[in-house]
């Protein structure tokens, strides 16, 4: 592989035939970095390639075909599961982003207050506890509530998703707010704008990229969740990941590859948008 390390020493100063001494180089590190990329992407590449395979076997290539995409898109079970995923994802995203926005407004651009450390710990709590523990604990709580009130429904699943989406929505909004300075808002206030006007006309539009980023991350996280959904979801509340998880355990067909490819594509598009959108704003 070509040597891609950065040459920090000025060219021409060294005798020919000897590479200039590179301060930053460490032996073997560049190879490992490329290997790391290979490890991260090769399995996904295999998955995608074989989703276009005509053969029933998942890893024996015969010829190019879109039949598994057709079969996946016509599969009633997949359609229903996708609808459930979208519903749960939409509600969890809206609610968690709203809550996270309020929380971010309260925790940034102000003097510190007592209990702030605790507030961060609570908000990030879903990230620190192993997901399986959260899953069974939530199951226990919901089972108890259902037993006491007799109320069932998909609302429980939406609530569970909302909780673990909050920290993911919170992070980019908070980051955005911390980057904003107060001058525009102060100028507006000097020009007799009411606090509400300042918020609506200045603060909200400025923090919008953060809110959009937070909402996207929350949606991706909700859409991808397996463990908590597996424990909390009742009958008829099968989300897309749970459906394909079932397929994977029963015996896989290229249809699983096709659905998986579509889900990967959705996440990649959302995250890539966010990444390049965020870059241009800076």
């Amino acid at each position: 592989m070509a040597d891609r390390t950065l040459q920090t020493t000025a060219p021409g100063g060294k005798p020919a035939g000897r590479r200039p001494f590179d301060l930053k180089r460490q032996t073997g590190f560049s190879e490992i970095a490329w290997f790391c990329l290979f490890v991260l992407y090769a399995p996904i590449a295999v998955l995608i390639v074989f989703s276009f395979n005509d053969n029933r076997s998942v890893t024996l290539w015969t010829e190019f075909s879109l039949r598994w995409y057709r079969s996946a898109l016509n599969n009633q079970g997949i359609q229903n599961a996708a609808m459930i995923s979208l519903q749960v994802g939409a509600v969890a995203t809206l609610v968690s982003t709203f809550f996270a926005t309020l929380a971010a407004l309260a925790t940034t651009r102000n003097e510190r207050f007592r209990g702030e450390g605790l507030v961060y710990a609570v908000i990030n709590q879903p990230l620190m506890i192993p997901e399986i523990v959260t899953a069974v604990a939530t199951l226990a709580l919901f089972a108890l509530i259902k037993q006491l009130t007799g109320v069932g429904g998909i609302g429980y699943l939406m609530l569970a998703h909302t909780v673990f989406c909050i920290p993911f929505a919170y992070m980019p909004i908070r980051a955005r707010l911390e980057d904003m300075n107060l001058t525009l808002e102060q100028a507006a206030a000097d020009l007799y704008a009411t606090p509400l006007q300042v918020f609506r006309r200045i603060t909200l539009p400025l923090m919008m990229p953060g809110i959009v980023a937070g909402a996207m991350l929350a949606f991706v996280v909700s859409f991808d969740d397996v463990i908590i959904t597996l424990m909390v979801a009742g009958p008829g509340e099968t989300t897309l990941p749970i459906y394909i998880f079932g397929q994977m355990r029963r015996g896989i067909t290229p249809e699983t590859n096709a659905v998986s490819t579509l889900i990967v594509l959705l996440s990649v598009v959302l995250v890539a948008l966010l990444f390049f959108f965020g870059k241009r704003r800076r």
Binding site: Y41, I44, P241, I252, S260, I263
Partner: peptide, 15 residues
């Protein structure tokens, strides 16, 4: 890869 579904990445590893 962190933002792509863990389940699907594990499935890719199965393949």
């Amino acid at each position: 890869p962190f933002w792509t579904n863990l389940l699907i990445r594990t499935f890719a590893m199965m393949l």
